[in-house]
Nucleic acid binder design. Structure first.
Lengths: 197, 197, 197, 197
DNA sequence: GATTAACCGAGACGGTACGTCGCGTCTTCGG
DNA sequence: CCGAAGACGCGACGTACCGTCTCGGTTAATC
């Protein structure tokens, strides 16, 4: 039983499905997002979805891939004005805005929920979607190291987790209000450390 | 139709439901955990579940309450040997062990997933389950402040997030291996800060 | 896995399903009669149908049983005026009228088609629905034998087949116009035989 | 979109489709005979089938035409030894054998079922397939009339129905065992009539 | 012998119905 | 009146075929 031939795939249907899924996930609670609903909205047969995607999460993932390729193929880059704290604060504030906007909160939360339940999807996510972004973050931090604004001996992955982890965790677990102030507070603490100096 | 009368509630059925739910969530993927399955395993009618719990998440939540009350009613406390880093590392290593053990990982993950999707449940969780634990963490940090091992001007909630956030985030999002080493690295970074000194 | 408990069965749903099926089969070609359509018309869940009937044909059969029990429990009887030919002609004309009326033609044809394809259903049909009728026919013929109007040595089942078979066959196979004249012609031929006298 | 050009039709595909259909209808219940199944077995694209046949029944019909043309183009003829009863009995026994053999029973039953549901197909059937055979039967009966073995005033169509109707009806409706004895009994009754003499 | 238009196998497509599963409600019966 | 049991209306699941369509690749009549 051979897999379907991708060369025969209808690009129109593919985009219709991904767009419909992305729109629907903003309109209804994720638990109520159904394949039938997506197919109906996209004007597509259910079989077309089942033929090309193994799960609802995979559709969601592809939708993100499609929409984050607005900046087509470009490598993402963090601002680098030389002022590390200011640059990171700007990025975090943008993230806060995104996580606060229902149009982006809903799809990202849905994806995060799926990732939490599916290690295979998680791997794909961290390779294909989060990876490039994390690389950009690490590039910015390395630049700070070169400028002497960041300790040389710190593991950059740990640094990224320390800066973004608290914010993401609070967001995903509804752990408190998601504000610029909170982002600033965690950023300052991460940069300066908790110990007295 | 009057609300059910809690005084006539069967304690036996209640425990049977919570135990069945807790066991089942370890055996099957959370998406396949059904009310019918729980009722069947518990030897309980479906109506009994619908009468006393508003949602699957509520059952899960109660199951946690039941099981975390092994240390019946006692207020949780972190170790305080005077060595902050060592004490925190010990707690984090215990957490790593828990999050790594399938028996605890599965139910906690299921609860986390529900919390991510239900703000109301999130509030209850942070008040009733996470709250006391967070208070204990803050008590330990305040003690460290008194001993001069922690900066006086740091917001303790931010400090807790900084220490535990990266670990929880990596766990929930399958962001990488969950090891004692990683916990130590984030702990050290949190305590000392990222900036060169 | 025990079968469903018939004592719990909803009589209302049962009748709704049978009535809906009987009505629908008159309105749409039998090939387009769907379980979903029946369930929808009956205001009943699909599962309720699948729980109690093994096939569409079984529903149809039960619908016939229900509706032919208008003459509740009574044993059917053919007229017996002493004039065999006249009595049989009257019955055959009534049959022609029934087979010609779309309201009865459609359901009977559907049932006949299912019987042709399902020997098990055929047995049930010949025992429960056709049986009593055939018995009545044979009673009338036996009475004719007693009156000396019918040969004593003829097998009554063969006689019934000879009288009704040609008509039913023409009806089911669309073999020609279904008229009283045709019924009379076959009846006369059956009674008198084809050989010269 | 012009109609297909019959001159370019692939004879190979045509035969493959008809053979596949005829074989499949013997192997699976008729309700499970699908166009896709036929196309697959025939090694033919679905479009080729839809291009040349309007329905599944039409395929079946053509398959019969093809296979009954083994005796290519020849006009069928009933035996005529001068002994009417013996000749008819021989033909009926052959029919019984055919209707009893699964290899012929299945396809004939499928066709009969379609004819029962589709008057248009019925007409075609009675003209093209059944017609020549019925003509042969009537020729044999007319010869019997000429020999004084059959009443002159009997309608030959009625006579044919009287002789073959009961048998066909019993076959199609699974009305009882299909034996030579039963054929003989109906034949004798048809020839001699039911009335005492 | 090259061109070209239609047929061909293949199978993706938008649909409809299938038969199943679980939801949350309702009904029955026993303690 | 609670609780076990489970039938009910409902809606989504994932699958099977429907009949249409589009795609290259023959194939046969025309130039």
């Amino acid at each position: 039983m051979p897999n379907p031939d991708p060369s025969r795939r209808s690009e129109k249907s593919r985009r219709a499905v991904l767009t419909a899924a992305f729109e629907l996930v903003q309109e209804v609670p994720y638990a109520q997002l159904t394949i039938e609903g997506i197919a109906g909205r996209a004007g597509v047969g259910k079989q077309t979805i089942y033929r090309w995607w193994p799960s609802k999460a995979a559709i969601l993932f592809d939708a993100f891939l499609l929409l984050s390729r607005s900046d087509d193929g470009a490598t993402p880059e963090l601002p680098d004005t030389g002022d590390l704290r200011r640059d990171l604060a700007a990025v975090l504030h943008a993230t806060v805005a995104e996580l606060t906007d229902p149009r982006t909160d809903a799809p990202m939360r849905a994806l995060a929920v799926e990732i939490a339940q599916d290690p295979a999807l998680a791997r794909t996510y961290h390779e294909r979607l989060d990876g490039p972004l994390r690389d950009a973050k690490k590039r910015r931090l390395r630049s700070a190291q070169d400028a002497g604004h960041l300790a040389r001996d710190v593991d950059l992955d740990v640094a990224v987790d320390l800066i973004w982890g608290p914010l993401l965790n609070r967001w995903l677990q509804h752990g408190g209000p998601l504000t610029d102030d909170y982002a600033d507070a965690t950023l300052d603490a991460a940069l300066s450390g908790l110990r007295p100096r």
